[in-house]
Design a protein around this nucleic acid. Structure first.
Lengths: 218, 218
DNA sequence: CGGCCCCTCCCCCTCGCGGGGGAGGGGCGC
DNA sequence: GCGCCCCTCCCCCGCGAGGGGGAGGGGCCG
């Protein structure tokens, strides 16, 4: 019994990427795509997917509203995994409250995406540790969760210092001078920051810093 | 909180023109004028401007020396934008080396001047002296005005496409796939973008994209 | 027509970045 | 005392990023 997946994302390339990953698996199949939340109810009743991978941020009807609508109207609704580019995305939190079964970051490794789809299809609620900690750290009532969280609230002071300077466009060498430490130390801190933010490089770290409000434009 | 601007130029008409442009803005205000670099330190301590627009070429104490003097003597010195008539003005580079935060050509369009003032007032990551010098050195005298603000309006469509994807955290290879061109082409575009934005690397380009409103968080 | 810009793609090269290890000292809580 | 985290610094290594060139085709415009 193959798991039927519906992709909902306004970016065609994202859909294409997910489809490629999913269709390469024997037990998974993409049965349809939608570029807008408004198309989802129709697609669901027509295609009867088991799992929906849905972007939170879309024009017209966003992922949260689409999730609510499906869960409210469809009997035996499919599992919904909310997909987002950035962790600590308010919309993700809202989507989970609306009844989504889990969420994924777009930069998540393919294997993990596949695993996530299978898990929710089998009835498991999916929440990756990193994602849970990110949410707990950012939205929890100041409670320090067991284990450190991969978000800037859980960055050490030094790491936050480094991230701020990275987000000013400074190189590792420049940061080293500014903090009066060796470039090696800066590299260590930057590496830790990237790991905690699940960013691939400093550019993505800067984007996250802006998107999460760690820093603000002007 | 309005941004307080001090004008320093030996030509009264230039000062008047700048004042007219700046005072027309709600968030900007000219708090004083000086016709000579020698008057600047006193004006700074008296008026506490956020930004100084300073001509490089002035009788008695020129803009470079005035810049040095302020940065050496004033605690929490204001941001200094060096103003010049000529592109590739040697004095400009000296001023930047002396610690000025950016420079403008007098013929720059008013909107760009305003934007530049706001940008430097916001933080120290806006104009990158090293990159400016590199640009001027490579582009040569026939190049387009190096003093003009880093304007995405000047980017070609393709370059803007590339910048948008860079600002999503994508690598050159990923962008190449997304735009169906070769990685080499992407490198060319990215290089052009960096040059036009006066950014040293893609990280700085992303910062500028956020700070100028080319892209917005959320 | 001849320039000029834009887009495309190629070569070379250097170097900073990030990943993989590890190591030592200081502070804090158990 | 011991463990744990943080900060500091070191090694090696591969790779992508940028800078320096150049080149060809298409479109637009004087």
């Amino acid at each position: 019994m193959t798991i039927k997946v519906l992709l909902v994302d306004d970016e065609r390339l994202i859909r294409a990427g997910l489809a490629a990953i999913i269709n390469a698996e024997d037990d998974l199949a993409v049965v349809g795509e939608a570029s807008d939340g408004a198309e989802v109810p129709g697609a669901v009743s027509r295609l009867r997917p088991d799992v929906i991978l849905m972007d939170v941020r879309m024009p017209r009807l966003d992922g949260i509203q689409a999730t609510r609508r499906i869960l409210d109207t469809v009997p035996e609704p499919p599992r919904i995994i909310v997909v987002t580019t950035f962790e600590n995305d308010e919309y993700v939190y809202d989507a989970l409250k609306a009844g989504a079964n889990g969420f994924l970051l777009k930069r998540t490794r393919p294997e993990e995406i596949l695993q996530a789809v299978r898990m929710v299809a089998h009835g498991d609620t999916l929440l990756f540790p990193a994602a849970i900690r990110a949410l707990a750290a950012s939205h929890g009532p100041a409670g320090d969760a067991p284990g450190s969280a991969p978000w800037h609230g859980r960055l050490t002071e030094r790491e936050a210092d480094v991230l701020r300077l990275v987000a000013k466009g400074h190189s590792n060498a420049e940061i080293a001078q500014e903090l009066f430490v060796s470039p090696q130390t800066v590299k260590t801190h930057v590496g830790n920051v990237l790991g905690k933010l699940q960013a691939r490089d400093r550019t993505q770290a800067v984007i996250l810093a802006y998107e999460t409000g760690f820093i603000t434009p002007g």
